[in-house]
Amino acid sequence: MTGPFVLCRLAGVDYFPKSINSRPVSHRPGVGYDFVMKFGILVFPGTWSDRDCGHALETLGQEIEYVWHADTDVDRFDALVVPGGFSYGDYLRAGAIARFSPVMESVSKFAVDGRGVIGICNGFQILCEAGLLPGALMRNDHLEFRCTWTDLRVENDRTMFSHTARSRDLLRVPISHGEGSYQADEDTISELEENERVVFRYSGPAGEVTPEWNPNGSVNNIAGIINKTGNVLGMMPHPERACDPLIGGEDGAAIFRAMFTEMSALG
């Protein structure tokens, strides 16, 4: 692989070389090679967007396998999805019980190895509870469940989850949660902001990041963040619900696609 494209390099971690199964399948002008990767999709009791994520990724040409929470071997995967739902009924606190599932220790090792992990909705909550991402998801400020389309402004387009878009682009992706208000202490928020670890923010249709367009009371309209090494993303919106124009849009596919598309050096 030569030319203007380089391997995805984030904080010194090579992404694709660690992949076991990935192979390039196509070259898309201006973007790079697409790879077929093997995604492991975690399933806890109470998870429900496992099959939605599976369907979206398969439609995008990827291989998937569901991983029961009691399994601990995730080495065969190139990337992991921690999907949405109400794991263990979200009793105690969203994600608080799931983090103790046997599979989560393997997910931590997988993440430390630098392989990609995307946590969506309840998955984001679980990753926060497991300490793979900072902060916590609190109850929506208006105290109601909210299912609606949102516009996500891309804040950092140099991550392995967002490089298919450009900063300030808007991605139309729905939310569906009762506990999605992102909160963290001031130091954590400054650290996230300074190091551009906020990947997506809720915005208006013209890119305005204002309280009016904040659907849940998240600090600084934060919708998605990455870890320090850039290979773990947590986001409350559901990209798997926005992968087909027939059901309302396909902007969410850009996020999955970024995970299996080579990053442009020009990006």
């Binding site: 429900w48 967007s49 099959r51 939605d52 369907h55 979206a56 109601e144 469940f145 909210r146 299912c147 609606t148 729905p174 569906s176 559901h238 798997e240 619900r241 992968c243 087909d244 027939l246 059901i247 309302g248």
Partner: peptide, 14 residues
């Protein structure tokens, strides 16, 4: 009312 209900899960809602 209906924004309090998840009307999209299962990704079949046209």
């Amino acid at each position: 009312v209906f924004r309090q209900y998840d009307h999209q899960v299962q990704t079949n809602t046209v």
